[in-house]
Design a protein around this nucleic acid. Structure first.
Lengths: 179, 179
DNA sequence: GAAGATTGAGTGTTCAATCTTT
DNA sequence: AAAGATTGAACACTCAATCTTC
């Protein structure tokens, strides 16, 4: 009795990504189809998600980086972090942070002070106006996310979250990344 | 008899994302924790993945956009696409495509010709040097991907791929996106 | 000397305006 | 007019150099 190899296609129609990967499998039958599809889907979903959030936020005139900076401060003890902490949370270079902080300061959403205990550091504090704005943005983003996931079975979403966490832990080890 | 609500934490240790979401749940108990975690993990994994691929490609002096353009042409019938087709595959504006094509042309990896059947269009063709380079890049990327996923159970990866496809189909409908 | 933040040059994107062809 | 590609201005990033403080 010989087993038939099924290419792990579930009860979901094939999409563009399946077609692309099928092309490469024909060129190289050794290719790991599961891995190729997974990578492409990860990037595509994340891209779609980001674009959707960006559009919803754009309606109230906000960039994603702005959202992330304000929300990071909103979570901080005393609504306050050093520029270095913000830098590491945002995964951008120090030049970008300086740039962003200047713009947030212009809007009056954050304040910059020299850290008295270590005068090399800059303490960034969320102002009252910044806190109010942060909470607005959070609400908008929550609505956008619910809309994005609409129609996907609850069980799928939960399983996705769990599996992604597993992957995330492994990937962090494999890449020795701090993100 | 009262049911105890379990916050769907599987046999995986909590991470930074769980902490962030827990903060917001305390602020707003109505918050859908599963959805918030999922969104953050999607973005984080995709970000990590992209960074890893970028680093591996940088070792052979290639940018990700370059990789995607060459590989898109590599799959095309006759190794040829119009600038507009490339634009829609890459999800960037026409200005970016013009810019990219000029640089690829400088390296001698693609050729630009006016489409004789519609002289508004530009036909982009992968040269022989471009085809060789594309295949090199594909090999490098495959290695990088295998390294990224190392240690994650096969079943998890397969399930992730299937669930992501389900999500992708729904999200495309929810956002009316063409990506 | 090392760490944290700022500055400036270089890069690559978007957006709007333009040019050509249909 | 409308569609496809190009151009240039504005913007935001990275990277390397600099300045201040430890």
């Amino acid at each position: 009795v010989s087993a038939v190899v099924i290419h792990s296609q579930p009860a979901v129609p094939a999409d563009r990504i399946d077609d692309v990967v099928e092309f490469w499998r024909r060129e190289n039958p050794e290719l790991d189809v599961t891995l190729k599809c997974l990578g492409m889907r990860l990037r595509t979903v994340a891209h779609l998600f980001e674009r959707e959030i960006r559009q919803e936020l754009a309606a109230i005139d906000v960039e994603i980086w702005e959202f992330e900076m304000l929300l990071s401060l909103r979570r901080a003890p005393d609504l306050q972090r050093t520029a270095g902490e913000l830098l590491r949370e945002a995964n951008v270079t120090s030049g970008a942070i300086t740039n962003r902080l200047s713009r947030l300061e212009d809007h009056g959403w954050v304040r910059r002070d020299v850290d008295p205990s270590d005068r090399r550091q800059v303490l960034v504090t969320l102002t009252e106006a910044g806190r109010i704005r942060a909470d607005e943005l959070m609400t908008t983003k929550n609505h956008a996310e619910e809309k994005f996931y609409a129609g996907v079975p609850r069980a799928t979403l939960t399983r996705l979250g769990d599996d992604l966490r597993t992957l995330l832990l492994a990937a962090r080890a494999n890449t020795s990344a701090d993100g």
